[in-house]
Design a protein around this nucleic acid. Structure first.
Lengths: 136, 136
DNA sequence: GTCCCTGCAAACTTTTTGCAACTCA
DNA sequence: TGAGTTGCAAAAAGTTTGCAGGGAC
């Protein structure tokens, strides 16, 4: 039940928050913008103000329910925080986003930070790719 | 001479472009926003419109003269493209940006893309770090 | 009943664009 | 001269905020 998730996160259970959480749960593996969430909810005849969606997404991020990405730089995209960490690969042809996780890279990042006298708090890794040419 | 750089890049040599290029050259290793460039030029009594700076920075990026970064997601920051590729580490305490290059990570990225059937076009890697606690 | 939440509209920030005037080659 | 460039102001795009009314507990 989504309302349990909200309570555990210390957020009052309200209809808008429940609806936004439901949409995000139904989109695991996707990366949506505030506008996307707004439109998806409208399709369900749930008219929640865009400003409210922004507020809710920010709150969800604050309590660690979801992750914010800046794949391009313009719009922010959100994704429900899953148990397993991963990075992203974006296909410049199709716009597809492929998730991956590489222990070697994760380990090196820790070492690099340590070598420079820092502690690693987090990171953002995005690969821009295109499908391999399959000879004509 | 900066005008040679512009000509080689196929850009007409104009005063605004020369001035922007000079500022960027004097800031190698820094990462500045369009607004930063605008203000730096004003300090030199060179009043170039902010819109023009945006246009020039975009053109410079198109011809490969500089790289655009989205460290936070809000403002875009630019850096003259140096001969050596590197990634960035941002200190959340001081805002300092440390550059680094790691062959192991670079190699793994290539492999990951290949494994998934893609060709690596580019990447963006940003580590968020804080200084290691030195016991009180 | 109280405090937090939501909706709306307006404000804000960063970046782009239309158009007339200007400049480089 | 004439195509490309600049400046200004207005427009876009994405996000935040103030405030009055509404909802959760």
């Amino acid at each position: 039940m989504s309302s349990q998730t909200l309570k555990k996160a210390g957020l009052k259970v309200t209809l808008p928050r429940l609806k936004v959480l439901e949409v995000m749960e139904s989109l695991v593996g996707n990366h949506v913008s505030a506008e996307d969430v707004y439109k998806l909810l409208l399709e369900t005849k749930t008219d929640i103000g865009l400003a409210t969606i922004y507020r809710i997404l920010n709150q969800f991020e604050e309590v660690g329910l979801l992750t914010r990405h800046h794949f391009d730089g313009a719009v922010a995209r959100f994704e429900l925080k899953s148990s397993s960490h991963h990075d992203h690969m974006i296909c410049t042809d199709s716009g597809d986003i492929i998730e991956f996780n590489d222990p070697v890279i994760e380990a090196r990042q820790q070492e690099i930070a340590r070598e420079k006298g820092y502690e690693l708090l987090g990171h953002s890794l995005i690969l821009r790719v295109k499908p391999t040419e399959r000879i004509a």
